[in-house]
Design a protein around this nucleic acid. Sequence first.
DNA 1: GTCTATAGAGGGATAGAC
DNA 2: GTCTATCCCTCTATAGAC
Lengths: 212, 212
Amino acid sequence: MTGTRRKLIEGTIEVLRTRGIAGTSARAIANAAGVNQALAFYHFGTVDNLVDVACRESTAELLSHYHDRFLSVTSLRELLTLGRELNVTQRDAGNVTVLAQVLAGAQQDGSLASAARHSLGLWVAEIEAVLHRVLADSPVLELASAGDLAQAVAATFIGVELYEGVEPDAAARVLDTFETLSVLAEVLDDLGPVARRALRARLRRHRRPAVG
Amino acid sequence: MTGTRRKLIEGTIEVLRTRGIAGTSARAIANAAGVNQALAFYHFGTVDNLVDVACRESTAELLSHYHDRFLSVTSLRELLTLGRELNVTQRDAGNVTVLAQVLAGAQQDGSLASAARHSLGLWVAEIEAVLHRVLADSPVLELASAGDLAQAVAATFIGVELYEGVEPDAAARVLDTFETLSVLAEVLDDLGPVARRALRARLRRHRRPAVG
DNA sequence: GTCTATAGAGGGATAGAC
DNA sequence: GTCTATCCCTCTATAGAC
């Protein structure tokens, strides 16, 4: 690890953020990293592999940096507030944008798909742990598992990040909207035992009767 | 309109779907369209402009094709069922994938951003009309406007489409999860006037006290 | 480990014949 | 409107000097 590896990885993140997956090349990366272009191939073999490694490390680092914040979340609303903070704070650092770009490239490239799957898995695991803790006594978990909900949250966050690139205000409003909707979950949690039993019965009746 | 224009537009859609925004070039498009490469520039000036036009027309055509289906939706759950049908039916046609790819490219390219904004606007308008009708008497609209909700739905759908490329099963489960959660809205709608008034009071109390 | 130089493919875009 | 041919650029990747 000469430092060149690090420079190349950080250069890759920067290029993915500023020029997108379509503009990510060995030359652009080397230029952003301030190293010779041939070194990308010496250290990582191919550009795809460099992007793969950079995506995994970037996600792992971001999540380890925020792990304590996730641990301190005690409600659905706080989770969404943390999501909004991540959105704002990481906008310039671009870590979430990077995942979105890799995900776009992953639709056609197996190597990128593997990186995206891995990074998304890290996000989902972190979110799932929070949901499991926060919704422990909530009727919401009778509707969907913490794992399924975590994937829904992750997918939504990716969509919001992409939306943000073309309609910044709208993206912020989407996060506000979800935060506001989370009040519904809080209301459910605050119901007394009687009302709650009635709700459960109602949910059972309403559950989708068939697959279609 | 010689037919060549159409061929180029359809070729662009196909290339965006099969090779992604990073693999979309005049040569690839002309090859998919079965026409000469120079014609892309004769008819559209630049590749960016061709992608722009193709994205807009593809979205408009898809939505006009589904307009009656949107009109026939009478509940939140039906809207999500239609979303799932769109996801399955259009997976091969790839119209939604195209929008996701253009959206990824739009993060760095102004021309693509304009196309993505326009296409997303068409989607949001269609969804907003449905929500406005379907939620007319629902307490949900006291939490968020139909327009804000429509943007949230659109952003989520984009995220799901990208998720699908790396975890097909997970993406299907995300759509199921949202459909299941829509039961909550139905439960709210079915409340009697007394319980409803109580809920309203509760929501007012729970509304986020500050911006943070 | 790092550099220069380059091969070889593919890219955007144009000129000019038809 | 359509074609061929081409310019010039950028790309991945490698060879070989240091």
